[in-house]
Simulated scan of single mutants.
Amino acid sequence: MALKVFNFKCKNGHLFEAMIPSVKEFEKQRDAGLFLCPFCECREVERVLSAPHVARSRSTSVSASEKEAQERLENLIKEVAEQINSAEDVGEKFAAEARAIHYGDSPERSIRGTAKTEEVIELIEEGVPIVPLGVKNDRKVN
């Protein structure tokens, strides 16, 4: 069965995409409490409008502006990677250390590490400036 990409929004305002076979399958999973927001695990999710993908023909040559945009993107990716690699790895103590830096209880510096979804949400709600870069998918659903 082919999967389709649909846009969704939870009651907390998080927007995300998911690949599902059909709208009916989404409704079935949602009604059974199996369809969760990947950010906050909220079960109150609704489908929102999606822009259709329209295939367009492309010439084999890439314009100068496209090359420039690609170079800027590659440079940005390299810069982010350098920032991540130069940050101090505090491991699972990330939430506590980020909070300590934010409130002035620890020296100002760039850190990286891991945090649970709940900890990330709490840090964001407290106004601690963090950039979540990924999530460990340890859930059995979705």
Rank of each mutant, 00 (worst) to 15 (best):
S22A: 05
L34M: 11
F16G: 01
H102D: 00
I84N: 08
R43F: 11
N7V: 00
C42Q: 05
D105C: 14
G91V: 05
D31Y: 02
P52N: 10
K4G: 00
L15A: 04
L36H: 11
D105Q: 15
G33P: 06
C40E: 13
A100K: 15
C40I: 01
I20M: 02
T117W: 01
E74Y: 14
S57T: 13
K28E: 11
E79G: 08
E97A: 12
E44P: 00
N85A: 13
C40P: 06
V128F: 08
I121C: 03
F39A: 07
A2P: 14
L133R: 09
K140M: 07
R72Y: 13
H102L: 05
V135T: 12
L76Y: 15
L36D: 09
H14K: 02
A115R: 12
C37H: 02
I84H: 10
Q29P: 00
S65E: 09
E92H: 10
I111H: 13
N7C: 02
V54M: 08
K67L: 10
G134S: 08
D89A: 06
A81F: 10
V23E: 05
L76K: 12
F26T: 09
L73Q: 10
L34N: 12
F8I: 02
N7T: 01
F6G: 00
E97S: 13
V54N: 06
S86N: 10
F35P: 05
L36K: 07
K11V: 07
C10L: 03
P21G: 07
A55R: 11
I84G: 06
V90C: 10
R109V: 00
A32K: 02
I84V: 09
K28A: 03
I77C: 03
G127H: 10
Q83F: 12
S59D: 05
Q70E: 08
K9S: 00
E92T: 11
K116Y: 01
S59T: 11
R112G: 06
V48Q: 05
L15Y: 14
S22I: 06
S106V: 01
S65P: 00
K67I: 04
S106G: 05
Y103P: 00
S110K: 11
P21F: 06
L34V: 01
E46G: 03
C10P: 04
F6A: 00
V62H: 09
A32T: 02
E66G: 04
S106I: 00
A96P: 05
G13F: 00
K136E: 11
K11E: 15
A51M: 12
V48T: 06
I130C: 08
